[in-house]
């Protein structure tokens, strides 16, 4: 057996975290991106800047503030405790919250770009043909922006797999609960267990390569959709 139980659990947690984060981001990021793409609000650059913050901030800064926010005295931790739940710091839920914020721009920006590229014309046409705003969104905007959704999902997923600093700060390193592959590799290197580090790092490279190849291959097939 190449991977011991701890390694397999680290992989499972990593992919579960990436999948849940991507799903949450698509649900939250789509309306946000739609609003940013369509609003005429003159101060929309402020939310745009906020969305882009994780791109420039060191993950430790983000992680530090998240740690405080998630703790029992922080606003998010307080919300959880008021609802009768345990503080999400050092739990999988905490990791999801951190990852959602950390990967936000990687999902929102491609979606916003895809929505902006549609322009208002196809939506106006749909309106004159009797489609309500929600109907226009699902029957026109989503299918035309489909490659944007694919890119957003892949980037969000891949970026979450590659997460390290934020997880280290807010997840602790609890095997079977919050220990992801990137942290397991770090631990192995610290303990000079290069063989195990190699196997984990190499696997992550191969898996990432396969995912991206499949997705870019699919995206090519969608590309013939052009606006005329």
């Amino acid at each position: 057996m190449i991977f011991d139980e701890a390694a397999i659990s680290a992989f499972l947690i990593t992919f579960k975290l990436a999948a849940v984060t991507t799903a949450v981001l698509l649900v939250l990021g789509t309306p946000l991106a739609w609003w940013l793409a369509r609003t005429g609000w003159r101060f929309k650059f402020i939310p745009e800047a906020v969305v882009a913050m994780p791109l420039v901030l060191p993950p430790t800064v983000l992680g530090f503030y998240l740690l405080i926010a998630l703790g029992p005295n922080g606003p998010i931790g307080f919300l959880f405790e008021s609802a009768g739940l345990a503080s999400p710091a050092f739990t999988f839920t905490g990791l999801v919250i951190g990852s959602v914020i950390y990967s936000l721009p990687f999902v929102v920006q491609p979606l916003q770009g895809a929505f902006e590229a549609i322009g208002s014309r196809p939506l106006e046409v749909a309106a004159t043909l009797g489609a309500s705003p929600a109907d226009r969104f699902f029957s026109v905007a989503v299918p035309i922006a489909w490659p944007g959704f694919l890119t957003a999902a892949v980037l969000g997923f891949a970026h979450t797999i590659g997460e390290f600093g934020v997880v280290l700060m807010i997840g602790g390193n609890i095997p079977g609960s919050t220990r992801v592959v990137s942290i397991a590799i770090y631990d192995h290197v610290e303990s000079l267990e290069y063989a195990q580090a190699h196997w984990l790092a190499g696997s992550l490279m191969v898996i990432s390569f396969i995912i991206l190849t499949v997705v870019y291959g699919l995206n090519r097939r969608f590309r013939p959709i052009r606006l005329k």
């Binding site: 014309r121 196809p122 046409v125 004159t128 035309i144 959709i225 005329k228």
Partner: peptide, 11 residues
């Protein structure tokens, strides 16, 4: 409504 450009749904 018929627009200047055909504006067909590309998908």
């Amino acid at each position: 409504y018929v627009f200047q450009e055909p504006s067909l749904f590309p998908h």
